[in-house]
């Protein structure tokens, strides 16, 4: 069975937010909310600095607390390659999942349900890349099935050094950052 993952090359990413804008228009994410965002993390003292730029979003965790804690089954593993989704009509807006996500990737949609990145399931189903991946002007985002060794993402993870966010939390994220 497929296991979709996103691989983002922090060496090429310039933090331009095109991925955020694209998500906004593609999924018409409500004003003043974002499903993805950029973290600029710098270390050192001027001028000896190192800057890591990360385009972040739901990590579609292998071991997702948001799904475990959901009282209604609204948060669930979709059949499509382990993507984590929310059934709007099952969601009570109890916010347990918001509180349980170590990445604060979720928010409450003004309509009342828990909202977050869907890995653009509606596009992936059609064999397209997620919107953010498809616009990235630096081509630093990759999307695909990590179960498939021939896939670009698998090759990148095999050949490059990478990190995931807060591995200590034990969530087993599926957004990988090449460093």
């Amino acid at each position: 069975m497929a296991r979709y993952a996103m691989v983002i090359d922090t060496k090429k990413c310039v933090g331009c937010m095109d991925c955020v804008v694209a998500c906004k228009t593609e999924n018409n994410v409500p004003e003043s909310f974002n499903r993805d965002w950029i973290n600029f993390e710098s270390i050192g003292k001027f001028p000896e600095l190192h800057l890591e730029i990360r385009s972040e979003r739901c990590n579609h965790c292998e071991n997702p607390p948001c799904v475990h804690c959901c009282p209604t089954g609204a948060s669930h593993f979709s059949k499509l390659g382990g993507i984590i989704l929310v059934h709007h009509d099952l969601c009570t807006g109890c916010k347990a999942c918001l509180a349980s996500c170590p990445y604060d990737a979720r928010f409450i949609n003004p309509e009342g349900y828990a909202d977050k990145c869907t890995f653009c399931t509606h596009r992936v189903e059609k064999g397209m890349n997620p919107a953010c991946v498809s616009v990235c002007p630096t081509h630093c985002m990759y999307f695909g099935d990590i179960e498939d060794q021939q896939n670009q993402v698998s090759k990148l993870l095999a050949s490059r050094k990478y990190i995931t966010l807060i591995p200590e939390a034990g969530t087993k994220p599926h957004v990988y950052y090449l460093i």
Binding site: C69, T72, G73, Y113
Partner: peptide, 26 residues
């Protein structure tokens, strides 16, 4: 009062989610 999607509150009782303390609680 805290719940954001009040019209869906009954959804607590259409299922039992064994891993969810909140489900247990309800």
């Amino acid at each position: 009062l805290d719940i954001e999607y009040k019209v869906h509150v009954w959804r607590f009782y259409t299922t039992f989610q064994i891993t969810s303390p909140m489900s247990w609680g309800s």
